[in-house]
Each structure stands twice: as C-alpha cells, then as structure tokens.
C-alpha cells in the first residue's frame, strides 16, 4: 500500500527536510571534487566558496604520477602511489571477503545442519567474541603477526579476518537454519559427500544472503583502517585508507598538498560511487536487511 500524501504544509516541510538530508549527505562529495579540480595556488582563496577556483585536471594526473600541467615547486613527485594503493585495497578486500564468505559459510552450515559434540559451546564462543573490542585484539595480534614475520605482507594483513569473523558466521547460520532440508536429504541418499551437498546444494540456495554478506564485508574491508595501518605500512601493501592518512599526517610539519589530496580522495571514492551506480538497488537492499536477522 503506497498512500501518497497530498502536498499539505507538513508534507512540503517533509520534502524540504528530505532535500536537506540529501544535500548535507552530498555536500562533502562536491567539496572534495571542487577542491580537486582547483589550481593548488587557488585552493585556500576559494576554500570558503562552493565554486571551484581556477580549473585544472592537473591534480589528478599529478596524483597518478603522470606528467601533469600542475607541478609544484616543492618537488613532491608522487605523494601517494595511487595505482599501487588501489591495487592493494582491491587485493586486501578480495582476499578477506572471499575467505570470510567461504570459511564462514562452511562453519555456519556445520553449526546449522550437522550434529557434533561441542557444537553449541563452539558457536556461543564465536558469538561471544563479537563483544571483544577490536583494540583488545590488535596488540597481541600485532605481536603474533610480527613473530610470524608477516609484517608488511598481505598474508599478515588478512590473517585475522580471512578464516572467519563472528558476524559472518552468525549471519550465514541464520539463513542455513531456515532453509529447507529436503534437497540435502535427497542428495545424501544419492551418495553425495557432505562437501558436495554443501557446495552444490546448500550454498547455491543462499546466493541472495551471500551477496548481501559480500557487499557488507566489502564495504568494511575497503574502509578498514587500523589493522592495515599497524601491519601493512610498506608501500607494496599499503591500502588506500592508510595511504591517505599518511598523506594527511604531514600537517604537523608541513601543510599538505590539499588539491592533490582531494584529487586522491576523489579517485578513491570513485570505485565506490561506480558500485553504487551499478548495484544501487542491491546495496541498498543488502544494507537494509542487515538489521533484520
């Protein structure tokens, strides 16, 4: 039932509020873009204006390490190796999401469908670990990764999340619990192995929830900051969020190249915006459902 309100005063006020919300949501995106297309020497004169200053696309090429029309006298070659950070972010996200999806589903399936001694104890242990604040884990995990010699490797960066996160297990278990079991039984009678049943039958039914989970996990991994910040500091593994904060941290000694920074920010947001354009409905619906477990 969709009942449209007539355009009364409260409704008009409501539309105004909605427009305000959207405006505030989008304003910072515009500020990043307009600063990115402004000549560096113009950035501060026009910082308090909604319009960009003298236009240029040189900031983007400069950040990408390409020959650029905008060279700074302070010879800062390529402050962030953008392409490399982008690649690193993609690898980091792909690894953590793929690993979590697979291993967490496997465990979730076992928790939901198979009987084995200690099952509930284990599951509640998993569940309880959602309450451990990440900061408690960072220091010992950092030391562990260090002892394993995995500092500055992707292996070290993805290790804590690639095998499971409590959320992923919990999320998938809910769906396996409510799925019909008849197909499983039939396959079992035909002599399919447990893994075959999981892989060929149980998992495909959950394509929807899997996609939802994948989107949720991707957003988190893409934006993850603290752990990669601790473990993945080498340029070869430094993800985008860490690279951007490195750029920023020069402020205490030196004013950063804001137009360059905003150009880098804009470029880092682009993949996400593109994703929103292509999968807008799916993302919205996935996020919507994450609270309805």
């Amino acid at each position: 039932m969709v009942r449209k309100l007539r355009l009364t005063v409260p409704a008009a006020f409501g539309y105004l509020m909605l427009a305000g919300f959207v405006g505030v949501s989008l304003l910072p995106f515009w500020v990043a873009i307009k600063t990115a297309i402004t000549q560096p020497g113009d950035v501060f004169q026009t910082a308090s204006s909604i319009a960009p200053g003298e236009l240029t696309f040189g900031n983007f090429t400069r950040v990408l390490g390409l020959p650029s029309s905008v060279e700074l006298t302070s010879v800062r070659a390529s402050p962030i190796n953008f392409a490399l950070s982008l690649r690193n972010s993609l690898i980091y996200t792909a690894l953590t999401v793929a690993g979590q999806l697979f291993f967490s589903s496997l465990a979730a399936y076992a928790f939901a469908r198979l009987k084995f001694p200690g099952r509930n104890l284990m599951f509640y242990g998993f569940l309880a670990s959602t309450m451990i604040p990440a900061i408690v884990l960072f220091i010992p995990n950092f030391i562990l990764i260090k002892d394993l010699g995995l500092i500055n490797t992707f292996a070290g960066m993805v290790a804590p999340t690639v095998l499971m996160t409590p959320f992923a297990v919990f999320f998938m278990r809910q769906f396996f619990l409510s799925a019909p079991r008849e197909l499983d039984e039939a396959a079992k009678l035909e002599g399919a192995s447990a893994f075959q049943i999981f892989w060929r039958i149980a998992l495909p039914i959950q394509a929807g929830p899997m996609a939802t989970l994948a989107i949720l996990l991707s957003i988190n991994s893409w934006n993850e900051f603290f752990w990669p910040f601790l473990v993945g500091r080498g340029e070869d593994v430094r993800v985008m969020a860490v690279a951007l904060s490195d750029f920023m941290s020069q402020t205490s000694q030196r004013t950063p190249d804001w137009s360059g920074l905003m150009a880098a920010l804009t470029l880092s947001i682009l993949p996400v915006i593109a994703l929103l354009f292509v999968f807008g409905r799916q993302i919205v619906e996935s996020l919507q459902s994450s609270g309805m477990k």
Binding site: L106, A107, G125, F126, S129, I132, L137, M164, V169
Partner: peptide
C-alpha cells in the same frame, strides 16, 4: 567444516 573458522577464532580471537 568448522575447523578453518575455529582456527581463525582460536588464533585471532581467543588467544589474543
């Protein structure tokens, strides 16, 4: 089935 996740849980949640 639970083993990989349990390893992740034990090594990176419980132990730390």
């Amino acid at each position: 089935f639970v083993a990989p996740a349990f390893v992740g849980f034990a090594v990176f949640y419980l132990l730390p």
